[in-house]
Amino acid sequence: MSDDQNYWKMIDRSKKQFDENTNIDSNKILKKSRHKALTTNILISLAVLLMIVPTLTLLTYFYYGSGGHDGRANTQIKVASDVIEVTEPNMFVKRMELEETIDFFSMDLNFDVYKRIGKEEYRVGEYDIDYMLDQPAFPNRTFFLDRPHPEIPPRDEPSYFIHPALHVPYEFKKEWEIVQNVPDGTVVEAYISFSNPIRPDDIRDINPGRDPDIDFLWLAVDTGVEKKVLDSEGLPVTPIGYPIYKDPPTWTPFDNRQDNSEVFKEILNHLENHEEQATKIARAKTLALDERIDYIQENGVNIYGAVVTGPASEIRKLQDNEYVRSLKVGEVKLWNWR
C-alpha cells in the first residue's frame, strides 16, 4: 500500500471513530444558541428604543441652543416680542415673564401682553405660539379689551391712525363724542393722528409745558405705505412704530440709552432677517419691511400719529389742538393719574 493511500485510510478511519464516540446533543446546542441570539436581539432593540428619547431630546436642545448669537430659541423669542412691540400700538411683552416649553423639535411659547393706560400697566391679553423647529404657527391670541382692533386688518382704510394724505373717515366724528361723554375721574388711552408728519423730537410741541397733561406711549412712523394702507403687492398693512418709556423697564430694547428711533431702525433690520416668522406673528398679512426700511433710510423717521394717555378731561382738550387731526378712543380705566 502506498503512503498516500495509507494516509487517507488512516484519516478516514480515525474520523469515523471520533464521530462515533462524539456525544453531543445537537438539538440542545441549536436551541441554546438560538435562544441566546434571540435574547441578544431583543436587548439590542430595547437599548435602541430606550436611546430614542434621550437622543431626540439632546438633538432638540442642541438645535434650539445653537445657531446665531444667542441660539435659535432666544432669537425667535426676541422676534416675537419685537414684532408685537412695533406693530401693536401701546402693547408690550414682559420678556422676563414669558414661558417656553421645548418638546421634540418644537417649542411652545406662552406670554402675556400689557398696555399702559393712565399711569398703570394692565394685562390685556395672552399669546400662545407653537413653533415647529423655528417656524411658528399662527398665534392664538386672546385679548381682554373693550375696544380691540379688528383681528383681520381691513382693506384700503386705516382703522385707527389716519395718515395726513388721507381724509378722515366719517365714523371718527363719533370718537370725539365718546371723549366728551366719558366721565371725569377716568383715564383714557387714545390714538391721535397729526395734521402733518413731524420729527420725533417735536412731539413735545403738542403739549408744551404739559398742557394738556398727557403722556405719549407709542409713536406711529410714516413709512410710505400708510398713504395707501397697502404695500407694493397690494396687501393691507398696519401701522408700525415704537414705544416710549419714561422710566424704561429692564427688559425692553427701547431703554433710552440711545435714541428710540435708532433702536427702532435696528429692530426693523433684525426683523427683516426673520421676516417670514415675524409676519406670521403680526396681525398684518405683510410687514413690507424691505419697502419700509428703504423709505425710512431716505426720509428719516417721521411721526404721523401717537398713542397718548391721560385723564379724560385732558384728552378732551386735544380736540382744539392744532396738531391733532383725528382721534380714536382705545381703553378707558378708572382714575389712576397721580
Binding site: F18, I29, K32, S33, R34, K36, A37, L38, N41
Partner: peptide, 24 residues
C-alpha cells in the same frame, strides 16, 4: 473546533458560540 483546541469542553462551547453568531 476540537482539532483546533484539542479540548472537548472548549470545542462544545465554541460550537454553541458559532451557531449563536450565525443566528445573529
Amino acid at each position: 473546533l476540537f482539532s483546533l483546541s484539542k479540548n472537548h469542553h472548549t470545542a462544545e462551547d465554541l460550537v454553541q458560540e458559532t451557531f449563536y453568531r450565525t443566528y445573529l
